[in-house]
Amino acid sequence: MATATTAPAAAFRPGRLLATAAAIVVALIWVFPVYWMVNSSLLPNVILTSATPRFVPTGFIDNYVAVIKSGGFLNALGTSLLVTLIAVAACLLFAFCAALAISRYKFKGRTSFVLTILFIQMLPAEGLFVAQYKLLSSADLLNNAGGLAVLYTAAVVPFTIWMLRGFVAGVPADLEEAAMVDGCSRGQAFFRITFPLLAPGLVASGVYAFLQAWNEFTIALVIMQKENSHTLPLWLRSFLMQSNSRATDWGQVMAASTLVAVPVIIFFLIVQGRLTSGLVAGAVKG
C-alpha cells in the first residue's frame, strides 16, 4: 500500500504485480457462478449434459422461449409485481411520515421509537413465520397478494425509516422556513422545496424496498403455498423441483434464473452505494 506511493512509478514492483494477478483471479472466481448461469441458459440441454462442459454459449434462445411459454412464469411475474408495488408504495408512504416525525420533531417517546425500530429490524422472519401464517389464515388472507404485501411492508418499513431519516435530516429546516417567509404556505414550502431535495432518498429507499420484497423467499414459501399464487422466487423453486422429477433441464432452469436475476441486478447497481453506507452508517468515522 504505502510502497505504491513511495517507490518511483516506473520501478518494477513484483508485490504489486502479484496483487494484480490475485485480484483478477479472485474476480474470475467470484463472477463465475453468474457467468455460468447466463452461459448455461444459452446452451441446449444436449450440450449441458455431455461429459465435457462448454464454456462459450452458442446463442441458443429456445430455453427462454420455453420458460416464458410454460405459463407459470408470467403468472408469477404478475403476482410478484402486484405484491412488490403495494409493499413499496405503502412502505415509502409510512416510512416517509415516520422519518419526518423523528427527524423534524422532538417529542416524548422519540428515542424509544427509534430504538424499537432498530430492534424490530433484527427480528428474523424464521422466528415469526409460523405466527404470521396463523395471522393471515385467521384473516383469510393466505395465498393473497395483499396479505403478503402487508407482511413485506412491516418487514421493510423499519430499515426504510432509518434510511429516510438520514435524508430528511440532510435537508435543513431553514430552507422551508425561508420559503414560508417568502409567502409559501407550509404545504407549498414542503412540496416545492423539501420534497424535490428528498427525491434521491425516496428513490434509493424505494429501490431497496423493491429488492427486499422482490427477492423474499421465506415468508412467501409459508404464505403463498398454492401454485397459482406463487411469487417469482417460489416459481423458480418449483420450476427446479418439477424438473427434478424428470431429468432436470438445466438450460431452462438457468434461463429462468437469469430472467429472475437480471432486473434485480440492474436495480441493485443503482442503490448499492447507499446500502453499504446505510448499514454501517458512520462507523468509519470511529
Partner: peptide, 26 residues
C-alpha cells in the same frame, strides 16, 4: 484491476438468493 474485482463482487452481491441457489445446485 480494482474496478474488475469490484464489478465481480457487485454482481455476486446483486444476485437474488433463489437464483444463486439454483446456480450452485447446478
Amino acid at each position: 484491476p480494482r474496478l474488475i474485482l469490484q464489478i465481480a463482487l457487485l454482481l455476486a452481491w446483486a444476485m437474488p438468493v433463489v437464483a444463486s441457489m439454483t446456480v450452485f445446485v447446478w
